[in-house]
Nucleic acid binder design. Structure first.
Lengths: 245, 245
DNA sequence: GTTTGCATAATTGTATCCAATCTACAATAT
DNA sequence: ATATTGTAGATTGGATACAATTATGCAAAC
């Protein structure tokens, strides 16, 4: 039974949640959080952008997208307003919106930012980390190493890191990290593809995870910092060598 | 001559910028950045929210706002989509949007986040800081101390800090800081009002500025961290004492 | 060949209209 | 009285329609 599809995805700003009524044992959803057309379209476009399925600079025509989803342009425009607010597209009046692209300098800056925030979060998370999160992290770590489908590397990488962050109990930090990663994910995926999965990343992941298991917050933070720093530098140098621009 | 009014304000996601064509010495605007109705309404609503002119939890009726700006509900809805993406309002399907409110825990978290990011930015900015920025900072610092109109304290405080950040040459950091400050600004203003301007803040501001003038990045960063930490704690304790909830 | 001047087609921005849903209050039952 | 149900008006989500602007194609002029 797929009910989640009709609720606002978490990227539209909402968490799916089961509400249990007063004395009534009934698995009820908060239908006030039903997804609008704009929600669905936002999630789909966001996904396509961060997965790199839409090229940077590619135009998003309202009418084309409206027809794809069998809706009018109104909800499409609303989705685009959100994408623009998140920095995923850029719009110019009467010209339309295009998928945002980042210069090497911008990518470098964003990785520098991640290298500041994410270590801080993992440090706070370690003391609170549940066995389940650690288990999941190990699962994603192994899966990342074993996966052969390039399309999946990006997901597994991100899931792994998320597992080590979620228990920090700092929703604002997490939302910033999420939005920040959205902006560079397409490039991360590209380089994961070009480098055939950055095999050495697995060892770094395992080292971070080990530090978490050993309840060493500072060490986990420092390893995370190094990991992000290295990933950023590798990424930009690969982009310089392997792409025009 | 006021041309800027017809351009997208920077909070709509754009910086006003003079584009000089190829070999042609001509002061030309990028007219693609003309403001739409949605841009204007977004800026106005955002402003009203962060200034605390709209109470937290207050409903924003599409029709009411549309009539105020003499437009249809369409651009109003688009503005609201952006506000929601920035976390300034919360919307529920068929119920409408309300001004977002933050719990004390959320405010605490956001100040903790600021205390991580802003010191890092000022540290990067100090070596690059222009005489003009330092001058402006001193101006706003003094103005903050001398100002008697409570409405202005919030602006002056924020302008002061901004002066010390802008030269860091890290647009992404700055955009995150800006959006983060937007979320707590209404509470900062409230407490500035309740504490009659937090007179002791002026001394802290001057100390930060002095460290910048003396080109001591680490010291400026540490003072900034303390300043934000203290401001956050003062703010939350005042909110606990002086507001219901 | 390149530039200029339209006419036309595409595309976006916004107004108007309708259907779905919520809210508030009256009507009814307990 | 209190709780429940029904209904009218308010409000939102979205489709359609139209206006404003930009992009394109093509002929005329240089």
């Amino acid at each position: 039974m797929r009910l989640m599809g009709v609720l606002k995805g978490q990227h539209a700003g909402y968490r799916e949640r089961l509400i249990v009524a007063n004395g009534l044992k009934l698995r009820a959803f908060d239908l006030g959080r039903q997804a609008t057309s704009a929600d669905v379209i936002y999630d789909a476009l966001r996904d396509a952008i961060i997965r790199g399925e839409l090229e940077e600079g590619e135009a998003l025509r309202q009418d084309t997208i409206a027809r794809m989803f069998n809706v009018s342009r109104i909800p499409v425009r609303e989705a685009m307003q959100r994408l623009e607010a998140q920095g995923l597209v850029i719009s110019e009046r009467y010209k339309g919106v295009v998928v945002a692209s980042l210069s090497h300098e911008q990518i470098t800056e964003i990785f520098q930012f991640r290298a500041l925030v994410e270590p801080s979060v993992i440090e706070m998370a370690v003391p609170l980390m549940s066995a389940k999160s650690l288990e999941q992290a190990q699962y994603y770590c192994d899966a990342f190493g074993a996966e052969t489908d390039p399309e999946r590397w990006g997901d597994l990488n991100r899931h792994f890191h998320n597992c080590l962050y979620v228990d920090c109990d700092k929703p604002y930090y997490l939302s910033v990290i999420d939005k920040t990663n959205d902006l560079v994910e397409r490039y991360v995926r590209l380089v994961l593809y070009l480098t055939q999965g950055m095999r050495n990343a697995v060892a770094e992941h395992q080292a971070i995870l080990d530090a978490c298991v050993a309840k060493k917050p500072k060490q986990a933070a420092e390893l995370t910092r190094q990991h992000i720093d290295k990933a950023g530098k590798t990424l930009v140098s690969y982009l310089r060598d392997h792409t025009r621009k």
